[in-house]
């Protein structure tokens, strides 16, 4: 079982990220996935997060106790949910938007300039999909194929090619980072 928190602010597609990953896991990977959203009194621009529990068996308790993955797209989101991370959690964050504290325990942190990549692709709002590509590569919790299958219907039809490109960008970057870290380990 894996407990994942996506955190950011309203308008970043935080809840959408949870839905895409949850759909990929539950419909295309044949696992069970429960996504819950929460947002403050004002959805736009306010603090916003979604939680996703992925499991091999039916999800009974649908919420996060200690997150295995925190995906942080804003400083406020990171600050709010940092303490929720388990001892061996993974932190994925947008390096231009979040300045994390020194890692505690065995927490592994992975950074990506997701919003900057999205801007390079021409539109900032696909930053969440760049992050999802990164998430897929780093965590392996959802398969690459399923994630790509989950996108249609959850992003505007016209923007699907762009979203797929954004996903690839994040995924490739994730693979590069992993390879680099792997070789660094080898060198040590």
């Amino acid at each position: 079982m894996a407990e994942i928190r996506f955190a950011g602010y309203g308008g970043q597609g935080i809840i959408r990220s949870g839905i895409i990953a949850g759909k990929a896991a539950s419909i295309f990977d044949s696992k069970y996935a429960t996504m819950s959203q929460s947002f403050g009194p004002e959805a736009r621009g306010g603090a916003c997060s979604s939680q996703l529990v992925i499991s091999e068996s039916k999800v009974l308790y649908p919420y996060i106790t200690n997150s295995d993955v925190l995906v942080a797209m804003s400083q406020a989101g990171y600050d709010k949910f940092e303490s929720e991370m388990g001892e061996e959690a993974m932190l994925l964050y947008d390096e231009d938007l979040v300045k994390p504290k020194p890692p505690r325990g065995k927490i592994l942190a992975h950074a990506i300039p997701a919003t900057r990549f999205a801007e390079e692709l021409g539109i900032k709002i696909v930053a969440n999909v760049v992050m999802l590509g990164f998430f897929t590569a780093i965590t392996n919790l959802v398969t690459y194929d399923s994630m790509k299958k989950a996108l249609p219907g959850l992003v505007p039809e016209k923007a699907l090619p762009l979203n797929l490109k954004a996903f690839e960008r994040g995924y490739e970057y994730g693979k590069e980072i992993l390879a680099k870290k792997q070789s660094n380990k080898g060198n040590k």
Partner: peptide, 9 residues
């Protein structure tokens, strides 16, 4: 609200 806004298969 929890069940209403909970997304599952």
């Amino acid at each position: 609200e929890c069940v209403g806004h909970m997304t599952e298969k």
